[in-house]
Design a protein around this nucleic acid. Structure first.
Lengths: 154, 154
DNA sequence: TATCATGTAACATCATATGTTACATGATGG
DNA sequence: CCATCATGTAACATATGATGTTACATGATA
């Protein structure tokens, strides 16, 4: 099964935007996200429609965050990238007249829906700001680790 | 996203097998599952490898349940059809050196894994027998409903 | 006005479930 | 023993949707 990586990909891009203090071009984001500028614009367009980011044309243009990252949850971003399918399984027929199919669909669908609700609840509990802070902690730890290596080599 | 319907499909077939007291051919299952006999054999082969069903060639041959349906859970069947992908989302890179990617992957992966565990736990709590009984209840109710209509029409 | 950047349409590509054809193998009944 | 039935399996076709790519239009800035 091909796994949709838009959410993961766009989060990567957004963290880069938070780090930069100025507009970031699709070209730069494409480098960071290991993809193509057109793909970046395509996915960022969804965020712009939801008012999460802004885009500016021309010299000095690019993408900037439009709202406080402490007020944006991963669930907001999930919806903004088009609310991709969560559960990779489904039914052959979504409108079954067959009683066997009804029994099977009910048993599976209730589980599917429950899983989807939990997934969205979890995403809704994480803000973009929290993710950025987590990254900064990793960065600090990484730098410390590098310094330790330098001192140890003396 | 294309949704994998093997689990749903094979459950449909298994309920038909429980209903029939004799071996059911791939041809018959294909009719019930609205698909092709070869597809039926392909998916049933997985169940046979797990000892859930048996197949017999020649006259009077076909597929039969190999174990008590009260001892088979939907999780067993899920695994037998090849344990299809549960969560339809993933990461661009599964082996990230980038710290941004690590932060993003950790945030999402923990949620993905939690959702998958809940999914499997739910499937493990439902036996094939319970599903069959649920179907029988629906059938009885349906019959009653038909009779009521006949009486009402008099 | 040249350059830079987004906006978007129109394809190509790729992975994977599903559908289909063809033929081999084995079991049963006559 | 042979015709028939059923599974076993390889090989290829199809469909879908994310992703990659090219091309060109539009708007903003220096």
């Amino acid at each position: 099964m091909i796994r949709d990586s838009r959410l993961s990909s766009v989060l990567h891009g957004l963290l880069h935007m938070i780090g930069a203090g100025e507009p970031v071009t699709s070209e730069q984001l494409a480098q960071a996200m290991a993809t193509n500028p057109v793909v970046v614009r395509r996915v960022m367009a969804g965020l712009r429609e939801q008012g999460l980011v802004r885009s500016e044309k021309g010299h000095g243009g690019g993408w900037t965050l439009a709202r406080d990252p402490a007020g944006i949850t991963l669930a907001d971003i999930y919806r903004a990238v088009g609310a991709p399918t969560i559960v990779a399984m489904g039914h052959r027929s979504e409108n079954p007249g067959c009683l066997v199919e009804q029994a099977v669909n009910d048993a599976l669908s209730s589980t599917f829906r429950e899983v989807e609700a939990i997934f969205l609840k979890r995403l809704g509990a994480v803000t973009l700001d929290a993710l950025a802070k987590d990254f900064e902690r990793r960065l600090a730890k990484h730098k410390q680790s590098l310094e330790d290596q330098i001192h140890a080599a003396k």
